[in-house]
Design a protein around this nucleic acid. Sequence first.
DNA 1: TTTCGGGTTATAT
DNA 2: ATATAACCCGAAA
Length: 626
Amino acid sequence: MAAKKCVNSDLVSVERVVNRWIVDYNLSLALELFKKQQFEDFNEVRNVLSVVMKRPVEATSDMPLKIRMLQFLGRINEGENLELIYDPGTPVTPLESALLLLENIMEAFGIPQQDWEDASNSLKVMIVATFIKNGNFDKAAQMLNKYFPKPVGRVRNILEGLIRQKNKTSNSFSFQLFKQEMLAFVQRLCYFDVPFSYRAAQELLTMRLEVDGDDDAEEIEQEVTNATPSPQKNPVPFQPCKHLIILRSRLESVYNALSEDEKTFAQLEQEVETEIQDRDGLHLEHSSDSETLDDLNAERADLPQRNVCSPMEASPAEQPPQTDDGPQIQARSLSKEHYTVARLVTEPDSQSSSQYTTGLEELETEAGTEKPPQVPDGSSEKELQCPVSDGETAIPTPKRPRRSKKTAARAAASVLETSSDSEDNSVEKRKEMQEETPPCQSNKSKSRNSGTSKRHSSGLQDDYITPVKRPVRQPSTGSSKKKSSTGRSISPESVGESPITESCLDSPSGPCHQHPVPQKSSTPEQAFPNTKWKSLFRTAKESKVTWNNEEMEFLLKDTKGSNESIKSNSGHKRKWTDQETEMLKEGVKTFGEGNWSKIKSYYDFKDRTNVNLKDRWRTMKNLKMV
DNA sequence: TTTCGGGTTATAT
DNA sequence: ATATAACCCGAAA
């Protein structure tokens, strides 16, 4: 009845389900390969995934997270390949993009604070260490200062020491260990169950073996159970392609049958049988199938709800998962040790461990309700299934032209920008525009007068303040709640290689970095009209509040206008702040006097030129500050 | 391009 | 008015 129509629409549903299995399977497989350090295979599987993901796939709640995690591992894996760039938009090394991705994941899915901090700290360390190993000490120093700003820390000191000694042979930071650590991290956050397809395939293999030789059957079955099967001399556990495909087609039919009506099912049964007989010529298959079918039934009930995480896991005998547990635990404990290193860094300014526990509890309960028993491994406690449901899309903060200081552009910009302005730079910029437009660009007579005269105008202050580093948290970019319906929306290409990440990586997130910035309430003082600015600032400085204000100011300037056009501060002498001075000191210490351009770029001085640095240093020397 | 040192200017006192 | 930190400029590498 309704024959074709139904069949067609079913075709899609079926494909989605089957693809879910495939994805599920490959996710686990990839992880397994990573664990076994078969990185080439790992990459290939990721490719497979990226292709599959282009098709409709039914989403499970934890799938998006897993996919991201895999993506994450992919970048970790390429971590030593500094040339590799994942997103031309933000040309950073793989590890850096991994870090960005991690931040993304954090925002989108929520990760226990502690785990996240540990992981990103390790990542940061490794970013620096990698540059050191490559002998790129300049870059290493840059990264060091970017990711380990200011506060001293043991790790920072170590890294700094290496940079200074230009010692690239130090093996304090093993990339292998790091990979394992990241793997452990991923495993802690995602539970990679033994996928249904895997188990089904296993059973199939087992059946075959039983058939092939009753004698060996038992032995082999054990083997299979131990995930070191290979009835043929195949070194790889469970031959991936061939058997999987068969299985898949079979299951597809099965499901199709189920969702339609029973007669096709019979047909399917026959088909399956025939197929199997063709290959192995046996009925024993049947028993396994019937199990499978039960499961399918169960699953089908789930379908509309999409809660399905891995439907059939629990059902057919707890086929011991792959060799998992051993190494996994190892990895974990190993990483524990390792984390202590990370913690050295974290401790000083990480102040939230409570978040962690609470968050974890939540997660636990959630996970608990969803799938009770699970694996013997203690890890199941920690895993978080699908914490925040919005899992999807990572807040692509609007791209911001990466600071270009060309004064020339100003004139032209004044016309163009006023019209094509985007909300972002709006206020400040416009203000700037107005100031700058009249005098055009006279290099020397810097429009100072016009600037000052205009400056006092209107209530810029408020405007200035409001856009403070918006809390990056778009409630639902697209489909937070509706994840259920569109399985495909999981970011079709978020797994593979090049194109993939666009969405995730994009977030330039350059400046609005992760700084745990000791959240002070400060902020409002940003918009000092003009002359008061300094005095107020002075006061602040003296009252020791400087730093934060400083930071805030940077952030502000950074996130909003500041897009040049301000050329050297529209005629103002900007006093050097303590913060800047400190950075300069550090810079000179690290790179030596005279390397102003390096220092400048590494510390990302805002609106200071090399010459400015040099002059400031000169002044400092005059003042005997150094 | 970057660095350097002398010269200029804005600002606090 | 003066001192000086911040900034500018042209030469040199």
